[in-house]
Write a protein that binds this DNA or RNA. Structure first.
Lengths: 129, 129
DNA sequence: TCCGATGGTTACCTCAAGGTACGTACTTTC
DNA sequence: GAAAGTACGTACCTTGAGGTAACCATCGGA
């Protein structure tokens, strides 16, 4: 479809198995401890800082701000400041962000749904050891 | 199909947004630095320890073994020892593991394909700041 | 006979992830 | 006028993730 080869010498795909490939960095932002949860939360709807903080259990303000900055730098999250009395800041996924979020939400959803089975399997199979 | 409700009082879904939910642990195993790559690698085919080590750039033996142990404990990876001269150990995804791997591979694949766009966006938008 | 490969384990050490606490600037509320 | 909420930034400190190196057991090959 959109695969214009144009005149590009570059625009090659990434390879996460290569230590030096920049995709490693992106992958680590997305799959970081709080990155996954931020993407999953924003996948539901746009949220303000405080709402995100309350929604994601256990995250500190510092780490939330830091994670949001990293995701914004990669172009996954859009930050909007509403200049009000106490300045309100809203976060939403960009078009690109929504695409990653689809995968992240899929993964998270699968884990949530299959959690009972996973936990059950943990106890049973000492035989394999 | 297989959705027997049985007599279960439990078997509830997980909630990753809850700090104390065990799904958090599973999620962190799966999305850990090396966990993602191991699942992605084994998503392609069964691999031996050394093959995995060579395939995943930058991983140490220690972390690879540790990651494999965690994924095996969660029932995502199956470990098979072939008692040969230098004992060979093979790793493959379980049925459950293949299901998570689908999501992980999807995510990783998306990042690899969209890497050029992501990197390009990084440089351009200093306006948003 | 010594080397190297296989698939680890263990001890040791380092650095960065991440938590706590406090500062900020402004406003509403009691 | 003091406290509380909003959205952070920063300094400080702890913990654990993760790297390095050495060791082990066995076998085939040079």
């Amino acid at each position: 479809m959109s695969t214009e080869v144009s005149s590009g010498l570059q625009a090659l795909e990434g390879d996460v198995f290569d230590t030096n490939c920049p995709s490693r960095g992106v992958l680590e932002h997305v799959t970081s401890r709080w990155g996954v949860l931020v993407l999953a939360a924003l996948g539901e709807r746009e949220l303000r800082f405080g709402e995100l903080h309350r929604r994601i259990g256990g995250v500190s303000q510092k780490m939330l701000a830091q994670t949001l900055r990293a995701l914004a730098a990669d172009g996954f999250v859009d930050r909007t400041v509403i200049p009000a009395a106490p300045p309100q800041v809203s976060y939403r996924l960009t078009a690109t962000g929504e695409q990653v979020a689809v995968h992240v939400v899929g993964l998270v959803g699968w884990i949530e749904q299959n959690l009972p089975a996973i936990l059950a399997a943990r106890d049973v199979e000492p035989a394999t050891r």
